[in-house]
Structures are given as C-alpha cells and as structure tokens.
C-alpha cells in the first residue's frame, strides 16, 4: 500500500488551490459599495464557501475568481442585506470546473 502523509490543517487558500478554474478576465460579480455601506447584516460574508467577499476599511471587496457558483450570495444579499451584489453565472465554459463534484 502506498504511504499516506499525515493530515495537517489546510487553510481556505490551500483548499481553493485544489479546485480547478478557467477564469474569465471579466468579473461575473459586481458590488455597489454605496449600498453595502448602508447594509447592516453584511450577509455575503457568511454564506460563501470560499469567502469570495471580504470586508476591509468598511468596504466590501470580492475575488470573483474564487467563486464556486453556488449563487447563495445573491439570495442572502437581496433578502437579508442591502442588494449591493449583482451576480450572474460566468460566461459559458468559464468559472469552476469540478473534477469530482
């Protein structure tokens, strides 16, 4: 039997490095920070498995290239947040490519 290395704590960035993407140059996500500034819940911060959205100096930043395309952010933002996020699927052939799924 082949030897197995010991399991170590693997960070979100390392986990993301294991997933395949064909990233578009253009973002499929837009954020209107004027709306986010007034948003009390910042719902987008909690529902994304790759933490695409993050808060810095009271502004929402996002890394669209890490998007697994769940679509959870749009529902959370529009129902519990202040509708600052515009999100659609990436163009055909772009975005995440699951090898196992």
């Amino acid at each position: 039997m082949k030897s197995l290395g010991s399991i170590k704590r693997i960070s979100l960035d390392e986990r993301l490095g294991l997933t395949s993407f064909n990233s578009d140059n253009e973002s499929h996500i837009e954020v209107d920070n004027e709306r986010c500034l007034l948003c009390k819940t910042k719902a987008c911060l909690y529902v994304c498995p790759t933490k695409v959205y993050y808060l810095k100096d009271n502004k929402i930043y996002f890394n669209y290239q890490a998007c697994l395309e769940t679509g959870g952010c749009i529902v959370a933002c529009h129902k519990l947040g202040n509708k600052g996020i515009t999100w659609k699927y990436p163009k055909g052939g772009f975005g995440v490519i699951f090898k196992y799924g």
Partner: peptide, 8 residues
C-alpha cells in the same frame, strides 16, 4: 484533499 467544492 483532492478538491474543495460547494453548492446550493
């Protein structure tokens, strides 16, 4: 770990 994924 081989892959990290998510879905609704």
């Amino acid at each position: 770990m081989l892959e990290y994924s998510g879905h609704l």
